[in-house]
């Protein structure tokens, strides 16, 4: 027992602890960054044909309370006439709708409807009035984007999107509890739909503002930086100087305090 406690106090123990700490941090990150790329692989676009009739039933059961029986809107939800299938696919497909409770903004949460049901709802809402359609695979196929176009996508992203979503697409705050979400892990289809429909407080970026080609470039840019990861190590949330400052005051100064206490303590 005594030997153990003595060994625990050994200066080597501090060192070993440090090494372990550093390795664990690095290791954890490696695992974390691995899981991101796995999540990406799961995202595949499938086109499912929806039925207006089924959609109408689903709508009446799940959406009409807020949006009105004929989707004409009410005090608690906007009219959905003319929002298009893309809006439904985005809102329902990311779990934002149906909303759990009224709040400043509908956050994304686990999806409540399967693909077929989502497609049915989309078909129904699309039948109410013309609006942006769900993009086909070709529209959001970013495999053909050249390096030059990718860089252009980055420029467009910085001018039109980074002020809300952050330059590294990590998200940011809006007024009164609203926020622009992080774009990590969002599928190509949903990014595209968000641009054309302007969900909630996001502005609409129609094709005359940002062309279809440019939208593809923006998506390609986002997917590129997401896949690339952070070359300098753990990105600390990509939140900029605030998280860096917080880190130096906690981990940095904490480490220094630990070292100074060890240095000035008396050897047993």
């Amino acid at each position: 027992m005594k030997a153990l406690s003595q060994r625990r106090r050994s200066p080597l123990a501090v060192f070993a602890l440090l090494v372990i700490g550093l390795l664990v941090t690095g290791g954890l990150y490696a695992v974390a960054s691995g899981s991101v790329s796995k999540a990406q692989a799961d995202e595949t676009t499938q086109t499912v044909n929806g039925s207006v009739e089924n959609g109408s039933k689903l709508f009446a059961a799940n959406c009409a309370t807020c949006h009105g029986l004929a989707a004409e809107g009410s005090d608690s939800g906007p009219s959905l006439v003319g929002v298009g299938a893309a809006a439904v696919d985005f809102q329902v497909g990311t779990g934002r709708m149906p909303m759990q409770m009224q709040g400043p903004q509908a956050p994304s949460k686990p999806v409540q409807f399967d693909e077929q049901q989502t497609a049915d709802l989309a078909a129904y809402v699309a039948s109410l009035g013309a609006g942006p359609a769900i993009p086909d695979e070709e529209t959001i196929d970013i495999s053909g984007v050249s390096d030059e176009e990718l860089a252009n996508g980055g420029t467009i992203f910085r001018v039109n999107c980074a002020m809300c979503h952050n330059a590294a697409a990590a998200g940011g705050a809006l007024t009164r509890g609203k926020f622009a979400p992080s774009l990590a892990g969002v599928s190509e289809q949903h990014i595209y739909e968000a641009m054309v429909t302007g969900p909630q407080n996001m502005p609409v970026f129609n094709d005359s503002n940002i062309t279809r080609e440019q939208k593809k470039q923006v998506i390609a840019y986002l997917k590129h930086i997401e896949a690339q990861g952070s070359p300098g190590g753990q990105a600390l949330g990509s939140l900029g100087p605030v998280s860096e400052g917080l880190f130096i005051w906690t981990a940095g100064i904490g480490l220094m305090v630990a070292f100074t206490i060890w240095i000035t303590s008396r050897h047993a």
Binding site: A162, M163, N166, A170, G172, A173, G240, P241, V242, G245
Partner: peptide, 9 residues
Amino acid sequence: VSAGTQPDW
């Protein structure tokens, strides 16, 4: 401009 535009601590 980027969201989260801050100076160093």
